[in-house]
Design a protein around this nucleic acid. Structure first.
Ligand code: SF4
Ligand code: SF4
Lengths: 154, 154
DNA sequence: CTGGTTTAGGACTCTTTTGTCTTTATTATA
DNA sequence: TATAATAAAGACAAAAGAGTCCTAAACCAG
């Protein structure tokens, strides 16, 4: 459904949304907390930076941060930036030369499902996922429990 | 969203559903009508045969046919046979060790979307897509118009 | 039994995705 | 200015997906 890169991007974005607003977080730390490959995550986040969804800063105290308030970033934006708009436009049968004019028998039904999908992603912002204390706690529980992340950073 | 193999399988199944009930259709003919690679389609349909969704017969007048009446075959069965159940069970974030007990902030919302998706595929049979004359016509228009398929078979 | 037709099965190539590693450019701080 | 920290960029390897092709096995008709 979603590519791996995309899920990593979403995880990282959600992580940033749950941190202090506007703070630059090193990718190293994100990758450790979420248990992802540092180098691979770097690639994904570079991509998001190019698309203007993240800001980045090199050097000491550098890292990445959300480019906009988390209330203004939808999940759909992130998915589209990484995987492209296919998920929200593609179709089940993938027939050549079909469409509204020449719809296959599934067209109408599928359009509905696709709309459902699109609404879910477009109608959810990062802020919505960390606003309620219980949701935030649930999210943090997903990564704060990773054992090796607790090792001190000298 | 769906793998290529999966869309090919769905197209072929729909094609068979629109043919005479129980008749064996050569894969060669299916591939020509739908404009798909014969060898690749063969692989996909072999897979469906192994999963008991198709019957097959070698030799002259052989081919493949639906193993059950099209009214008893859902799109979900075909998708699961080819792509596996991931689409209907997988999740957006793909966190390790999460689930009902330790849900991420998206879990509930996502479950809803996934249910929508599952209902659409599980609630649609092949017969439903070719029962209404207009739908059948729409479907046939998708492939009967391929120009080279009209060339006589000597 | 013989020969042509059709699926079955596997080897193989090409492309995309995933992941690793190394080097370079930029920044803050001492 | 020197040093350490950090993202940026690109080369490279490994794995999965897509697609091609060839041979074998089954089947029917004569
Ligand atoms: S008609 Fe619509 S649903 Fe059918 S194959 Fe084309 S785009 Fe997909
Ligand atoms: S809690 Fe649910 S939605 Fe969240 S990552 Fe796990 S399975 Fe996916």
């Amino acid at each position: 459904m979603l590519s791996r890169r995309c899920t990593y991007g979403l995880q990282a974005a959600l992580f940033l949304a749950s941190q202090e607003r506007g703070a630059y977080i090193p990718i190293q730390r994100i990758s450790e907390c979420l248990g992802l490959s540092f180098h691979f995550l770097t690639k994904v986040l570079q991509h998001l930076t190019h698309h203007g969804l993240l800001r980045s800063l090199r050097g000491p105290h550098g890292g990445v941060a959300l480019a906009r308030p988390p209330g203004q970033i939808t999940l759909k934006e992130i998915v589209v930036a990484i995987d492209g708009p296919d998920l929200f436009e593609a179709c089940v049968l993938g027939l050549p030369g079909c469409g509204e004019q020449k719809p296959c028998p599934l067209h109408e039904d599928w359009k509905e499902v696709r709309g459902c999908l699109r609404n879910a992603f477009a109608g959810t912002t990062l802020a919505m996922l960390v606003a309620e204390p219980e949701r935030l706690a649930a999210w943090q529980a997903c990564w704060t429990t990773s054992p090796d992340a607790a090792s001190a950073h000298s």
